[in-house]
């Protein structure tokens, strides 16, 4: 582990400056991803996990802005790059896949156009060789008769096929890192399994690192090496997947894991975390989870620092679960 990580997100803060006030969508989040590693970024809706992904790609739109922190990718701090330099990294060295495959492909452009333009945006090659790469990418994600498929429009594909095309587009320039924002949530369970398997295979083969953003811990369990849990825009805890799932340290992580329905609890009411996610607008200092937390004490009104309770484990909590 002496090699520097591929991506190091350090104290990232991304805030939206709205008329109603400042929304701290991402507030002090840190994690690292090594080359070829798969990181699961877990949290509920509104926990800032997607916004973390957008921040890494520089896709945050006004009124949102990265206000603090560093995003060091392969030795370069992306937050210091100008728009043009960041664009050259997007889709080239860091690619992204979105949640809803029905919406991510442009409905009025043919598949070949949409893949070829991604190649031509970053490489000075002829249209023919770009098309050859596009074809190759479709084959890699398991699309049969790619030549015919290249000339089709998105509406002629099923949801699973569209997501494969989106993955092919993400892969076409051979990125070092892919950020996948819940890419299987909108798909059937069977297709979900296929896509997961395919993604994992492709990443392992090509040594591509992957950040898999999801709310679904069961997906993470079989896929990721590391997991990073977020809550209300803040980092909660991280560690090896097996460690975190076996022995969660933060009461929120424990609540999340307990909420997953399991077979040996058949017939019993499902667990749930009491209360609701706080509004990011009115969020003050202190642990954002304390209102819902069974372990909370008056001390939790202060922000806990990030500690390292065990090798490879990082935690932001005063009262780790025993």
């Amino acid at each position: 582990m002496s090699a520097p990580p591929l991506l190091q997100v350090d104290g990232l803060r991304m805030h939206f400056f709205t008329k109603a006030g400042v929304v701290k969508a991402v507030d002090d989040v840190s994690f690292t991803v090594d080359r070829g590693e798969i990181l699961g970024l877990v949290g509920e809706s509104g926990s800032g996990k997607s916004m973390t992904g957008y921040s890494i790609l520089g896709l945050v739109d006004a009124p949102g802005r990265i206000v603090d922190g560093r995003i060091v990718f392969d030795g370069t701090d992306l937050t210091r790059l100008d728009a043009a330099a960041w664009r050259r990294i997007r889709g080239n060295r860091i690619a992204m896949i979105f949640q809803d495959p029905m919406m991510t492909l442009n409905p009025v452009l043919r598949i070949d156009t949409q893949i070829v333009e991604a190649v031509l945006a970053h490489a000075d090659v002829s249209r023919e060789s770009a098309l050859a790469r596009a074809r190759e990418a479709l084959v890699r994600v398991g699309i049969a008769s790619p030549d015919e498929r290249l000339r089709a429009y998105p509406h002629q594909f099923s949801g699973g096929m569209r997501q494969r095309v989106a993955i092919a587009i993400a892969l076409v320039n051979g990125p070092d890192l892919i950020i996948a924002d819940e890419p299987t949530t909108a798909l059937d369970v069977t297709i979900q399994g296929q896509i997961l398997f395919e993604m994992q295979k492709v990443c392992r083969e090509s040594g591509t690192a992957l950040i898999w953003i999801t709310h679904d811990l069961s997906v993470i369990a079989g896929l990721a090496d590391e997991v990073c849990v977020m809550y209300a825009g803040r980092f909660v805890e991280s560690g090896r997947v097996a460690d975190v799932l076996e022995r969660p340290l933060h009461p929120y992580s424990r609540g999340l894991i307990d909420s997953v329905p399991s077979r040996n609890e058949r017939g019993r009411p499902l667990h749930q975390i009491p209360g609701m996610t706080p509004s990011l607008l009115s969020l003050g200092p202190g642990c954002p989870f304390r209102e819902r937390c069974s372990e909370a004490t008056p001390r939790c009104a202060e922000s806990p620092a990030i500690t390292e309770p065990a090798p490879g484990r990082r935690l932001r909590c005063f009262h780790p679960v025993p």
């Binding site: 050259r88 690619a95 992204m96 979105f98 919406m103 452009l109 333009e117 945006a121 587009i169």
Partner: peptide, 29 residues
């Protein structure tokens, strides 16, 4: 605001192509 515009930007396309092709062709209908 559509995902396909964000996806086009995530591909690293120049702004001109995102607007001139991805946005324009859709709103032209």
């Amino acid at each position: 605001l559509q995902d396909y515009v964000k996806f086009a930007r995530a591909k690293g396309l120049p702004q001109g192509r995102v607007i001139g092709v991805h946005v324009l062709k859709n709103i032209l209908i």
